[in-house]
Each structure stands twice: as C-alpha cells, then as structure tokens.
Amino acid sequence: MKAPAKTSLDENEKKLVDQSKTLEGFTHRELTELARQLRSRRERILRMIRGRKREARKQGALSPDTGAHDKKAELIAAIERVHAALDARTHANRGAGMPAAKPKAAPKDTAKKSADAKAGEKPAKKSAAAAAKKPAAKKSASK
C-alpha cells in the first residue's frame, strides 16, 4: 500500500477537504456553502496553474507543477463528494410530504376530429386585393 502523498493544501483547504469526508451532520444549507467554498478554492488554483503555465511558456521552460495539480485533484474529489451527498439528499427528500404525482390523462382525439372537419370545408378564396396584386397565370393554348 502506498504511503499518503504529501499534500500542498493550506490549513483552510485541508479543513474543507476533511469536512467533505464526513457529511452526516450537515444541513442542506451547510452542504451548499461547503460546495461553494470548495469550488471557489478550485477556481483559484486553476487560475494559478494557468498563470504559471503562461509564465513558463514565455520563458521557454517546462513547468511540471505537480503540487498544484495534486491540490486541484483533491479539491475536485471533495467537490464530487459534497455534490453526491447533495444529490442523495435531494432525491431522498423529493416528494416528501407531498402526494404522488398523478399521471396525465391521455389526450382526447381532438386532432383527428378537427382534421376531418377541415377536410369537408372548401378552401378560402383570395381576397380582391390579393387578386389585384398578383394576376392569374395565363393558360397555354396548346391542344
């Protein structure tokens, strides 16, 4: 078994990641706040990684910033745990205390009736104004 890797998380990030590992006593609001804080930290580290890559490209050097990538991976794992807990609670609480949804009744066959009624009607005639704008096509005299 591998020894746990040395993490580059600061104290606050470590505290947030540790909180994401035990989520039983948290309310929905606390979970959403924890997820927000973790996402904020993840976005900060992503900006830092992009900035370091940009600076390394400018200098023409490679920047194997593994510590920042490890930190990002730990934050992403913590975010996924919190979101899984939120989803589980949402699905467990969905519909609690509410009556079950009733299936919709099948629509009546009104479309068929209206199509049959329209089939018997004569087509609308052109108005005098429309007929004046567009003269009728001449019939050919070929027989």
Rank of each mutant, 00 (worst) to 15 (best):
S8Y: 13
D10Y: 06
K15Y: 03
L16K: 00
V17N: 01
V17T: 06
D18C: 01
D18T: 04
D18H: 01
Q19G: 01
S20V: 03
K21D: 07
T22E: 13
L23T: 04
E24W: 03
G25V: 10
R29V: 06
E30M: 07
E30S: 04
T32Q: 08
L34E: 02
L34R: 00
A35C: 08
A35S: 11
R39F: 08
S40E: 12
S40P: 00
S40V: 03
R42A: 11
E43D: 10
I45G: 02
L46M: 13
R47D: 12
R47P: 00
M48E: 15
M48V: 12
I49E: 12
I49R: 12
R50M: 10
R50I: 02
G51C: 03
G51D: 14
R52K: 14
R52M: 07
E55R: 13
A56R: 06
A56M: 10
A56Q: 03
R57F: 05
G60I: 04
G60A: 05
A61G: 09
A61M: 15
S63C: 11
D65Q: 10
D65E: 11
T66M: 07
G67Y: 06
A68E: 14
A68C: 11
H69W: 07
H69Y: 08
D70W: 05
D70F: 05
K72S: 13
K72L: 15
K72T: 04
K72E: 13
A73W: 00
E74I: 05
E74D: 09
L75T: 06
L75Q: 04
A77G: 07
A77I: 01
I79E: 15
I79M: 15
R81L: 12
V82D: 02
V82N: 02
V82K: 01
V82M: 02
V82S: 00
H83I: 14
L86N: 11
D87S: 08
A88V: 09
A88R: 15
R89K: 13
H91I: 15
R94M: 13
R94V: 11
R94T: 04
G95C: 11
A96G: 03
A100G: 10
A100V: 09
A100S: 10
A101V: 12
A101S: 12
K102I: 14
